[in-house]
Amino acid sequence: NKFNKEQQWATYEILNLPNLNEEQRKAFIDSLKDDPSQSANLLAEAKKLNDAQA
């Protein structure tokens, strides 16, 4: 299913963002699990935070 693929991709991407700390990473991944339909939005937020902390 589409959300499952998006969720897996977003999880992979978030795990590989270098500037997030473990707590932030875990929070994003927990949110992905809670609502896979928000995968794209959550990934965008994670990338923004990652860039802000660069």
Rank of each mutant, 00 (worst) to 15 (best):
N16G: 08
L20D: 00
I29Y: 03
W9P: 02
P18E: 07
D30M: 15
D35I: 05
L15S: 11
Q8W: 09
L49T: 06
Q24A: 03
Q8G: 04
Y12G: 06
L49H: 03
S31N: 10
E45H: 07
Q24L: 03
K48P: 00
E45D: 05
D30Y: 12
A44G: 07
P18R: 10
L17N: 01
D30K: 13
S37R: 07
K26D: 05
W9Q: 12
A27T: 09
P18H: 06
Q38H: 06
F28P: 00
A40R: 14
A44K: 10
D51S: 12
L32R: 00
W9R: 11
E6D: 10
K2T: 08
Q8S: 04
Q7G: 05
Q7K: 03
D35K: 08
D30V: 14
A52P: 02
L32G: 01
L32I: 13
L49D: 02
L17W: 01
Q53G: 06
P36R: 02
E22T: 10
D51T: 10
L42T: 10
A46N: 00
L32H: 01
S39I: 15
F28V: 02
Q8H: 04
L49Y: 05
Q53R: 04
K5H: 07
D34A: 12
A52F: 10
R25D: 00
S39M: 08
N19A: 09
K33H: 11
E13K: 12
L32Q: 03
Q38E: 07
D30Q: 13
F3W: 05
S31Y: 07
R25K: 13
K48F: 07
K2M: 15
P36T: 03
Q53A: 06
K26P: 00
I14K: 00
K2Y: 08
Q38V: 05
S39G: 05
Y12K: 05
Q53L: 06
A46D: 00
K48V: 08
N4Y: 13
K5P: 15
A27G: 09
N19G: 04
D35P: 01
F3R: 08
Q24I: 03
N50L: 01
N19K: 04
K33W: 12
L42P: 01
E22R: 08
K47V: 11
S31D: 07
W9L: 13
N50K: 01
E22A: 08
E23S: 11
E6H: 06
K26L: 11
A10L: 04
E45N: 08
D51E: 12
Q24G: 01
T11V: 09
D34H: 10
N4V: 07
F28N: 00
E45R: 14
N1E: 10
A46M: 01
R25F: 03
N21R: 12
L49N: 02
A27K: 09
L42G: 01
E45Y: 13
A27W: 15
F3E: 15
S37P: 05
A40N: 07
A44W: 13
S39T: 08
S37N: 08
E45Q: 13
Q8M: 12
A40V: 12
A40H: 09
S37G: 08
D51G: 08
Q8D: 04
